[in-house]
C-alpha cells in the first residue's frame, strides 16, 4: 500500500473528517486529517500529500488564502469544499490555484470522480498528456487539431477550436470564466463572460447531440465550464 495516493483532508468538522477518512481509506487511499488551516499547511509541508481536500470555511484561516500559500511551493492538486451560495469564494479559490470544487453536501461518487480527475491531471503534468480526448461520439485530436463526431470531421473557427482545446485538455476539471477568457481571448477580455456564453452556444451546436441539454460541455453555474470526457 505504499504506492497508495496520499490525501490530506483539511476540515474543522470532525464528522466530515471521520466520514472522509472511512470512505477514502476504504477506496485504498492513505488519509491524513487536519482540523485547521495552520495544521493543514504544516502537514502539507511535512507529509507532501498527493492531493489536498480543503474546506473553505475554516475557523482560523481563510481557505482561499491557504490555497494561495500552498501554491507558493507545491503543485499538488487541491479540491475545495464549500457550502452553497459562496460562488465568490469558490471562484477565488479556483483562481488562486485550486483544481476543483465540491458543494457541501456532496455525493461520494462525485468526490471520488473529482479526486480521480485531479490525480490524473497531476500525473499528466509530470508525464506526457494524452493528445487524444474521447467523449461519447466525439474525438478531439489535440496534436493534429482534428475534431470528429462519429467518423465525420467537424469544422471549427479559430476561437472555437482554442476554446474546445482548452476545455478538452482539462477534461473533468472545472475551468473558471476568468481562466477560460484569459486563456482564449487574453487578459484584457477576462471579464467578458458574454463572449463565453455566445461561443459556448456555438460549440454546443456543433458538438452536442442536443445543444439545449448538453452532455459534454457542462455549465457550472456562477463558476465556469467543465468538459466531460470518457474516463
Amino acid at each position: 500500500m505504499s504506492n497508495a495516493p496520499h490525501i490530506l483532508v483539511v476540515d474543522d468538522e470532525l464528522q466530515i473528517q471521520r466520514a472522509l477518512r472511512t470512505i477514502l481509506s476504504e477506496k485504498g487511499f492513505k488519509v491524513t486529517t487536519a482540523s485547521n488551516g495552520e495544521e493543514g499547511l504544516t502537514l502539507a509541508a511535512t507529509q507532501e500529500p498527493d492531493l489536498v481536500i480543503l474546506d473553505l470555511g475554516l475557523p482560523d484561516t481563510d481557505g482561499v488564502e491557504i490555497c494561495a500559500r500552498l501554491r507558493e511551493w507545491t503543485q499538488c492538486p487541491i479540491i475545495v469544499l464549500s457550502v452553497r451560495d459562496s460562488e465568490r469564494d469558490k471562484v477565488a479559490a479556483l483562481d488562486q490555484g485550486a483544481d476543483d470544487y465540491l458543494t457541501k453536501p456532496f455525493g461520494i461518487e462525485e468526490l471520488l470522480a473529482r479526486v480521480r480527475v485531479a490525480l490524473r491531471h497531476a500525473a499528466g503534468g509530470k508525464g506526457g498528456q494524452s493528445k487524444l480526448v474521447k467523449a461519447g461520439p466525439l474525438t478531439i485530436d489535440l496534436a493534429w487539431h482534428i475534431i470528429r463526431r462519429g467518423g465525420e470531421e467537424i469544422k471549427l473557427t479559430g476561437t472555437e477550436y482554442k476554446l474546445l482545446a482548452y476545455l478538452a485538455s482539462n477534461h473533468g476539471r472545472v475551468l473558471t470564466h476568468q481562466s477560460i477568457l484569459t486563456h482564449v481571448w487574453g487578459p484584457a477580455d477576462a471579464d467578458h463572460t458574454e463572449y463565453l456564453r455566445v461561443y459556448m452556444r456555438q460549440l454546443r451546436k456543433k458538438l452536442e447531440e442536443d445543444p439545449e441539454r448538453p452532455a459534454y460541455i457542462l455549465t457550472e453555474p456562477g463558476i465556469g465550464y467543465r468538459f466531460i470526457a470518457d474516463e
Binding site: 460562488e87 463572460t193 458574454e194 456564453r197 455566445v198 459556448m200 452556444r201 445543444p211 439545449e212 441539454r213 448538453p214 457542462l218 455549465t219 453555474p221 456562477g222
Partner: peptide, 20 residues
C-alpha cells in the same frame, strides 16, 4: 443579483439537465 449577459436557453438547458 450578480448580473452578467446570459443566454436564457443555456440557463433553461442546465436546469433541464439537472432536473431530468
Amino acid at each position: 443579483p450578480k448580473r452578467d449577459w446570459n443566454i436564457l436557453s443555456e440557463i433553461v438547458g442546465s436546469v433541464l439537465v439537472r432536473m431530468k
